[in-house]
Design a binder for these strands. Sequence first.
DNA 1: GACAATTAGATTGTGTACAATTAAATCAAC
DNA 2: GTTGATTTAATTGTACACAATCTAATTGTC
Lengths: 147, 147
Amino acid sequence: MGDKYDCLKISNQLCFPLYACSKEIVKRYKPYLDPIDLTYTQYITMMVVWEEKEITVKALGDKLYLDSGTLTPVLKKLEQKGYVKRSRSKDDERNLIITLTDEGLELKKQACEIPAKMGQCVKLSPGETEQLYSLLYKILGCFPEEN
Amino acid sequence: MGDKYDCLKISNQLCFPLYACSKEIVKRYKPYLDPIDLTYTQYITMMVVWEEKEITVKALGDKLYLDSGTLTPVLKKLEQKGYVKRSRSKDDERNLIITLTDEGLELKKQACEIPAKMGQCVKLSPGETEQLYSLLYKILGCFPEEN
DNA sequence: GACAATTAGATTGTGTACAATTAAATCAAC
DNA sequence: GTTGATTTAATTGTACACAATCTAATTGTC
């Protein structure tokens, strides 16, 4: 055991469990997100809009690590569903401002059970959860906030 | 501070850094994968094929947490590039067997520098890396291997 | 051995992700 | 104040990712 190709074994990669875990957890959101007709990407986008009430696409992209190629269609969908409004900034016409609508605020009430329900699906102790959380942010911290 | 909606803050989610971290790391593979003309999904698929030499699509999907809807086009692409062969099992015609070709084996030599290069991009100590690795597999362990 | 149930892949449709390019607005230098 | 550079979104093209459905092959039951 231990040949020069061991480094290429899938079980020796750190990236793989990260990738697989992320996908599996996102998948487990579906049963909770379906009733409020949101996808995972739409959900995390709404989370930021719920917090900020008003934010540019640029700032949203920085927070979510997503670019306009991803966000533009997501935001158009959310506007179409009536949860946000899209309008150009008066100060700087290049900026598109995303604003929470009344329906968007209403949705927040229905969403607020979701985090607790999802928490049960990850079988880690509070200490382990904290550890994982801080390791992940340590990695993210090394990356430029945006592209 | 600490209202009833704190649970919906993006910074209080465990899923989000997991999702963001996974994407950011996959993105950082690109400069190393471009020269050998593989995408990340094609790369992890080849990793398993390099280890197994011969494997069914089903088993591949179990290992990679991917379904046939994702794997079918990926494997056709890899076949087209000449790295794998796709053929039905004689024993059970339902099974599609993926076999490593000589070109596929050749590619392994070029790929073997990648893990070390990527390792430098994640700024964690060996202990922290080990910790993260085991926490992620702990979560994955709770999930059924497949869908 | 016929037939229902199961299993493995393929296909289709929707929704991300991201690189690369484009277009419009603003900024910076002079 | 005009022009070149920068910034912000949108667009386009490629490649996943997965749910749902379909088809063909196999298995289990009697």
